[in-house]
Design a protein around this nucleic acid. Structure first.
Lengths: 344, 344
DNA sequence: TGTTAGCACTCAAGATTAACGAGTGCTAAT
DNA sequence: ATTAGCACTCGTTAATCTTGAGTGCTAACA
């Protein structure tokens, strides 16, 4: 177990290093106001801390920097984030009540502001729609051969998509298609659509509708890509301001990884409920060797539907970011809950 | 006027430099197969070319690299791009006929593939909708207080947007609103909507509809953001592979500029019809000092509606990029034209 | 007269060395 | 248990040297 003094020293190392990005030496630390021991004492304690793996020397005659284990201890035991202040919650209220009705716009804005405030990279995962069920499907023929399909889910979410009606199909065919689809898909969770479409629905369409094959292709395309589980990014450029990312190749590798949104998607979606901090290699991702990620989940009516995160160097201002992410997660939750509850 | 030999040498310098990114010396050039003179002769010619401003020495004992003026000459007189091959056009046909009905998806894909093939940065500007006119406006009330507005333009483009119906409004109010909007806005070019909305339409709504103010706010929001003039990016990371962009700050500045899509939007939209090449400072943008941009416009039914471009170092493979961009521009044009003509 | 060989000169880049200093570990004194 | 003292380490910076690719100029040559 670590002594009170060792904890104090570790804390000082992390705090200083987060600010300066320079290794901390015993001499300079002894000058801090909250430290009252001599450099030699500090050196002894540091040697112990190093032996236990909480801090590291970049080279034998340098000061110490926190190891990942050190950051972990810091986050788990030395941070005692105060609950959100009244006014912080109010700020978020204000931010989210500006009635932007499109969910997509809210997400985009959230990512932008979150990265702006933290000055790290932010990622926001749109609300998960796997478990919502179809409530109503409408198709609206437009001029020419286009039509628009409108999907309303039981959570009040509306998705719409335009598509081309296959050449040989007439109005009554279309109507049949809509009827069959409604019959088949209403009350089916979105996650099961694909399977449903490919089996029963397909058989039914085959039996009752001419040229069903053409239609089927179109339908699959239209329904497959759920726009909802998009990933929104903010503040990529902030990464390039950090002194530890002055190497273009390094940055490029990270960006390339982030650029594949499926990467970020899986990373974010397997995050645990509530708030989580993953430091460096804890993410076991090659590109994340010296990056940390703080994530939080947001919910509608109490059930988790999505998550958002901040990605920065392991040398990150954990306390501040945790605070901000909390704010945004609760803000997003209340805002979405209000929106959807209101609509029911 | 430049002699045949001078042109040959200039061409050799550009070609070599584009490949290697290293200054070209007289010695190494004399070893090229297509060059038959001695280093000394080449030196003399180079001295003349330099005096005329076509090439530059990075420092007094280095080889030569093309100046912007040199690139300009190269592009204008030394490139004689052959017309597109049959099979190249066919490739594009194939690429664009995969029936992706959403225009947005086409644009996104175009940007991705264009950057992939060129290995530079690509930007694609969605089709301009300023001059299209509204053909039909529908509103479809959904469950709860949501409704969906569907706009069909005379070019066959469909845009739709969900919004919240203000609390105190009932079905007949909504119907009135739709009628008034249709009356007012059908056949009005999109560019004039905002003005129209703010003047006459507003008055009419005021006279005939209760609670018009709430509704009006919603309408403005919904109609203002035309999703159509979005900018789509591809291959940002490619920039970081170029040897001239190994400085993170430099890259960050460029990215920050590109990140503001309004920048790119104005840059692209004021591009001249057909194909254009702008080299380095010709773009008069601080961040573009050593970047070149090649743009082309695409059209629907012969009238220009948008543009796409490739951004890379001034040391760019102009010939190859011009070729590719031509391909994509014509491909996009025929594809969009087919789509919209078909729908009328 | 245009081309080329020869040669002195330039200058960026890389290697070598030296001085510096912030930092350490260890020992002995407090 | 703490701290002063001291020898030692090693990255950083600046100074110096070497190398080599490249130049411009002059004089010889076809």
């Amino acid at each position: 177990m670590l002594s009170r003094r060792q904890l104090l020293i570790l804390q000082a190392i992390v705090d200083d290093y987060v600010q300066t990005a320079e290794p901390i030496g015993s001499r300079s630390m002894s000058k801090r106001e909250d430290i009252s021991f001599s450099p030699a004492t500090i050196r002894n304690e540091m040697a112990d801390l190093e032996e236990m793996g909480y801090i590291i020397k970049p080279h034998s005659s340098a000061g110490r920097i926190p190891s990942n284990k050190g950051y972990r201890l810091y986050v788990d035991h030395l941070l005692r984030p105060e609950p959100l202040q009244e006014h912080e919650i109010l700020d978020m209220e204000k931010f989210f009540t500006r009635r932007i009705s499109e969910v997509e716009a809210v997400m985009r804005k959230t990512a932008a502001v979150l990265s702006e405030l933290t000055s790290y990279v932010s990622v926001v995962l749109g609300p998960e729609m796997e478990h919502t069920r179809l409530k109503q499907l409408q198709m609206l023929p437009l001029s020419g051969r286009q039509a628009i399909a409108i999907l309303v889910t039981d959570s009040g979410h509306v998705e719409n998509r335009t598509f081309d009606i296959p050449e040989q199909m007439n109005a009554s065919d279309l109507e049949k298609v809509v009827n069959i689809l409604n019959e088949q898909l209403v009350d089916t969770p979105i996650g099961q659509w694909e399977e449903r479409l490919l089996t029963e629905t397909r058989r039914l369409l085959h039996r009752h509708v001419r040229h069903y094959e053409d239609m089927f292709g179109v339908l699959r395309d239209a329904f497959k890509t759920q726009r909802s589980d998009q990933v929104f990014y903010g503040g990529m450029m902030n990464l390039m301001m950090q002194p530890e990312f002055q190497d273009v190749d390094r940055v490029r590798m990270i960006f390339e990884w982030l650029d594949r949104s499926e990467n970020v998607h899986t990373l974010l979606s397997r995050t645990q409920e509530g708030l989580s901090v993953r430091i460096g290699r804890e993410n076991d991702i090659e590109a994340f060797a010296d990056l940390s990620m703080i994530t939080a989940t947001y919910s509608i009516d109490g059930s988790t539907v999505g998550s958002l995160g901040v990605i920065g160097p392991t040398r990150m201002e954990y306390e501040r970011v945790i605070r901000l992410i909390r704010q945004f997660a609760t803000g997003l939750s209340t805002s979405l809950t209000r929106k959807y509850r209101h609509d029911k």
